[in-house]
């Protein structure tokens, strides 16, 4: 709870200081310095000290979610990883090697455009694709469990392709070992 509050405050601070949207962790942005006064010859005053928002503490679940990314997405009825998914998983693998006590559960999900049992098996394949990738990139197999939620736990409401695309994912949930 404390962490969540901190995260919210951090986000608010970042938004106040820099009105720029970003999926990556917002790099601290100093307020733009006012234009130097014209023709004074005097050196401009030093810019005010920028208020640097503190990001999530390294090694926390928030750090993983915000700075690494905890979800990769799939095409319809597919379980092969996309390029951007591999990049997220590369970062996950690196993070998990940095924090070797962390354990994770890979949760495979499917959209609603399939029947329940088949989609359950499909979600299991997606979870396995992520598990295999992480193992191949140095994460010990014993730190990873998998589960499929099939189409039972969608994250996006609505019957649009955009919502379906979000619901076709594998989520890496931290189950223990974080600070």
């Amino acid at each position: 709870m404390r962490n969540l509050t901190r995260l919210a405050l951090t986000a608010a601070a970042a938004a106040a200081l820099a009105a720029c949207a970003s999926h990556k962790p917002p790099p601290p942005v100093a307020p733009t310095a006012p234009p130097p006064p014209a023709d004074t010859g005097a050196p401009p005053p030093p810019p005010p000290v920028a208020a640097r928002p503190t990001g999530p503490l390294p090694g926390t679940e928030q750090d993983f979610v915000v700075n690494v990314g905890d979800r990769v997405y799939f095409d319809f009825d597919q379980y092969t990883l996309r390029d951007e998914g591999r990049r997220v998983l590369d970062a996950q693998a690196a993070w998990l090697q940095r924090y070797p006590s962390v354990t994770v559960r890979i949760e495979g999900n499917a959209d609603e455009r399939g029947t329940r049992e088949y989609n359950f098996a499909l979600g299991a394949r997606r979870a396995e694709a992520v598990r295999t990738y992480l193992i191949d990139h140095g994460v010990a197999a014993g730190r990873i469990t998998t589960i499929s939620y099939g189409k039972e736990r969608p994250i996006a409401e609505g019957e649009t392709e955009e919502a379906f695309a979000k619901n076709r994912n594998a989520h890496t949930a931290i189950t223990g070992g974080v600070r």
Partner: peptide
């Protein structure tokens, strides 16, 4: 019933 082990049902 089905059992899924390592992505194979």
């Amino acid at each position: 019933f089905s059992v899924d082990r390592n992505g194979n049902s």
